[in-house]
Amino acid sequence: MPYKILDKKELAMNEVWYKIHAPHVAKKVQPGQFVIVRAFPNGERIPLTPVTWDRDEGWITLITFVRGKTTMRMANELKPGDELLNVAGPLGNPAPMKKFGKILAIGMITGIVEVFPIAKAWQEAGNEVTTLHVSPNPMVILKEEFENAVSRHIVEGFDLQPGWGMNEIAQELVKRAVAKVKELLENEHFDMILTVGPAGGQKAVFNVVKEFGIPMHADLHPIMVDATGMCGACRVTVGGEVKFACIDGPGFDAYKVDWDELIHRSGFYAPMERLALETYLKQLQAQGGEQ
C-alpha cells in the first residue's frame, strides 16, 4: 500500500505538517475520527488525526507534535516522495454533528489540530463557533485557517522561559487555559464546550466548565495499539463503565470521564518512551560523529 508523502513542512516549533496520499481514508473520514500510522519497519503504531482532506484527490493532512522517538524520527527522516508504511482508518466515531448553538472549542498545544475539522463542521452545520488555542507562542499553528473557518478564533499564547521543561510548560498551559476559559464563560453564554489536549489540561478546563453546568465533549488520548477494539490498551472509565476509546470514542461526555485515572494511565510508559528517545538521539549523535 503506497501512502506517499505528497508534501511536508514545519509549521512551527516541533509542529510538522504532512500531506499524505490515502484515498481509502480521505473518501470516508468524518470530523472526530482518526488514523493509525506506522512509518518504519521496526516502528510502532501511533494515532493521528486527519486535519483536512480531499475526497476526490484522495489525500489527507496530518500534523504531528514532535514529542518522542516516532514523531521525531518522522520529522527527521521522512521526505516528500517517501511513503508511510501503513495508514489505517478512518477509526473511532465521528463527533456528534448537530445544531448546539454557541460553541466554545478549546485546543491545547497540538490538540488544536483535532479541534479544526470538528469546529469547522460545527460552524458549517449552523453553529456559532468560537475556537480557543492555548499554546506556547512558538507552537501556534493554523491561525489563519481557523479565522477563515469559524466565527471567532482566540489565541492564548505564552512565551517559553529559559530552563523550562515539559512540567513547567504544562503548568503554565493549565493556568492560562483555566483563566481564559473562566473569563470567557463569565462574560458570555455558551451551549457546548469541546476540549482536546493533554488529559491534565482537559481535566482543569472541565472543572471550570462544570461550575457553569455547560455540556462538554472531550476527545480523549489514551495509549492505543491496534485501535480497532481488540486489546483494550485505550480503556477508560466513562459513567462507571469500562470503555475502549478507539471504538466507543475518542469523544466522550466530559462529565462522565474518570479524569484522574486517565491522567495516570497516560504516563504508563513514560520511562520507556524516554529510553526510546534517548537511544535514538544517541544514534543520531553517533551518525553525526561519523560524518
Partner: peptide, 14 residues
C-alpha cells in the same frame, strides 16, 4: 510489534 526487542523495535512493554 516485537516489543521483546525494544528498543530495537519501537513498541514498549512493561
Amino acid at each position: 510489534m516485537k516489543a521483546y526487542k525494544f528498543p530495537e523495535y519501537d513498541e514498549p512493554i512493561a
